[in-house]
Every structure is written in structure tokens, then in C-alpha cells.
């Protein structure tokens, strides 16, 4: 500093006011560049017919009109809703149950269990899908061999029957994500004061009632957070069906994200893919926002 002034510099005077903008700035710059602009470009592309080379042809609402008539799109939507229902109705409760079991007082090896259940999410999905493909091969897989040995029947066409293929995909989802969600619930449970349970016990509440009247309300914030995250991420499920079944047999495991990927990168229909993306955005964003608001995620009460 060449001059020493009595007055602090302009920056020093305003630092506390301006610093936070600089601190949070990088996120918004990246957000604008890599999210807002792409969404805008996606909306534009969705009104065009474009194969990736040459000028996009403006076709107005044609893409949307075709989408609504496209049975594949509805199939993928149906499948995605199925996956979402499964995670909300099965994976989520299963995680909560598992977390409650792990929260049992004085449980030995709690950390070991916690780690074992968590490990699947650590492993790359391609690896996981390969191993599941190995296990659920209809002709020579481990699963059928085990069923054969135990029940004398092992001819299930795991990945080639439309129904079983969906089962295999959700089993994979269950296996991959249950342990991950469990640790969130477990952390939530560990935050519930023991006194609440003791008070409930004094009132003569059984295990079920104390679960309903103490545990569930106390878990509301964590459930909300997990619920929204899971809802949004399952809405864009891609890796599990893509790697395991390629969406097959037929289109019975095709998800919306796969539909978009297929249109854009396998069929060169980039405008069409963008239109599907915009519809998906509208749906997921609305559901996500409503859920966030309902559950008050990210707000300090």
C-alpha cells in the first residue's frame, strides 16, 4: 500500500456485503452456462427437425404432436412411473425398515452392517450391471442354477420376459440404493431423542404405535429430503435398464432418459429428443418443486 488513509478502502467498507456474492457466484455462472443456456437451447431445438448436421428446420409443435402419438414414449413414461413407484413404495420403506433395525439399541457390528449395505452404490454401475447380467442369464445364470438346485425349477427367462426383465431391473435398483438411503434414515433415527420413546412407552404405546407417533414425525425432514432426491433421480433412471437390458425385451424396460438418449444418439433425431426432454423437464420440475415446497426442504423452520 502506497498511501495509508484513515478511511478504509471502498472494498474494505463493502466487503461483508459483497463477499457472499463472490462466494456463491461460481455456482450461478456454471448454472447459467451449463443449465440455463442448454435448457433454452433445448426448448428451441424442440421446435425443430434436426439430425445434427445442417440447419435445424423449424417445425413448430410437430415434435410434441408426434411425441403424444408415439407409443414408445408412452411405454417409456409408463416404465419410468413404474420405477418411481417402486423406489417410493418399496426401496424407501425398505431402507427405513433396515435403518430401524440397525438403530436397535446396543447393536453390535452396526458399522460393519452399515458399510456392507452401502458398498453397492460405491461400485460402478457398469460393473454391477455386468454381474447382474451374469447372475440373471436365462440359460446359464446363477439365479436359475440356484432355483434349480433348491426348487427343482430354474427356467425363468429373467431378461427376456417382459415382466421378469422389469423385476430384474428393480431388484438391481433395490440392491444398489437401499443401503445408500439407509444411512440417511439411520442418521435421522439417531437424532431422535431417546426420551421421546421413553415417554411414549410410559403412555403405554407399543412398538408400532411409538414408530407411528414418534419415529415417523421425527423423520419428516430426512424423509422429505430423501423422497425428493429419490423421486427426481428415479425419474431420470438410465444406467440400470440401459446396461442390463438395453431397454428390452422389446421396450418393456425402456425409461424416459433412455428414450431421449436413443432418439438423440442412436437415431439422430435431436429435435425430437429435445422435445421429449422439455416435457420431462416440465413434469419432473413441477413434481420436484411441489415436493420441495410441501416438505419445506432447505428451509430453516
Amino acid at each position: 500500500m502506497s498511501t495509508v488513509s484513515a478511511q478504509p478502502s471502498w472494498w474494505r467498507r463493502n466487503e461483508v456485503r459483497l463477499a457472499p456474492y463472490l462466494f456463491i457466484g461460481p455456482f450461478y455462472v456454471l448454472y447459467a452456462l451449463f443449465m440455463i443456456i442448454p435448457i433454452g437451447a433445448g426448448v428451441y431445438l424442440s421446435f425443430t427437425d434436426w439430425a445434427g448436421l445442417g440447419a435445424p428446420q423449424w417445425i413448430g409443435l410437430e415434435n410434441y404432436r408426434y411425441l403424444l402419438q408415439d407409443n414408445s414414449f408412452w411405454t417409456s413414461l409408463g416404465n419410468t412411473v413404474f420405477y418411481m413407484s417402486f423406489t417410493m413404495l418399496v426401496v424407501l420403506p425398505a431402507s427405513l425398515l433396515l435403518a430401524s433395525a440397525l438403530n436397535a439399541r446396543g447393536l453390535k457390528l452396526r458399522d460393519t452392517f452399515r458399510i456392507i449395505f452401502f458398498v453397492p452404490v460405491v461400485i460402478s454401475p457398469i460393473v454391477v450391471a455386468l454381474v447382474f447380467g451374469l447372475i440373471f442369464d436365462g440359460q446359464f445364470g446363477l439365479m436359475n442354477a440356484l432355483l434349480q438346485a433348491v426348487f427343482g425349477f430354474g427356467g425363468i427367462e429373467w431378461t427376456t420376459d417382459p415382466l421378469w426383465a422389469r423385476v430384474v431391473v428393480v431388484v438391481l435398483v433395490l440392491w444398489r440404493w437401499t443401503g445408500y438411503l439407509t444411512i440417511f434414515f439411520l442418521a435421522g433415527l439417531q437424532n431422535v431423542p431417546r426420551e421421546l420413546y421413553e415417554a411414549a412407552a410410559l403412555d403405554g404405546a407399543g412398538a408400532v404405535r411409538s414408530f407411528l407417533s414418534v419415529t415417523l414425525p421425527a423423520l419428516r425432514p430426512v424423509t422429505a429430503f430423501i423422497g425428493v432426491t429419490v423421486l427426481v433421480s428415479t425419474a431420470q433412471i438410465f444406467e440400470e435398464p440401459f446396461l442390463l437390458t438395453q431397454g428390452g425385451p422389446g421396450e418393456s424396460t425402456l425409461s424416459i432418459a433412455m428414450f431421449i438418449y436413443r432418439a438423440a444418439f442412436q437415431r439422430q433425431e435431436l429435435g425430437y429428443a429435445a422435445a421429449a426432454g422439455v416435457l420431462m423437464f416440465a413434469a419432473v420440475f413441477t413434481i420436484g418443486r411441489i415436493a420441495l415446497r410441501l416438505f419445506q426442504v432447505g428451509r430453516n423452520a
Binding site: G42, Q236, A264, L270, V278, M280, F281
Partner: peptide, 10 residues
């Protein structure tokens, strides 16, 4: 809540 699949193409 912005699905990734939406922005991948653009």
C-alpha cells in the same frame, strides 16, 4: 429438480 436427461442433448 432439473433432470439431467433434459440438458444432455443441448
Amino acid at each position: 429438480a432439473v433432470p439431467f436427461a433434459v440438458i444432455i442433448v443441448p
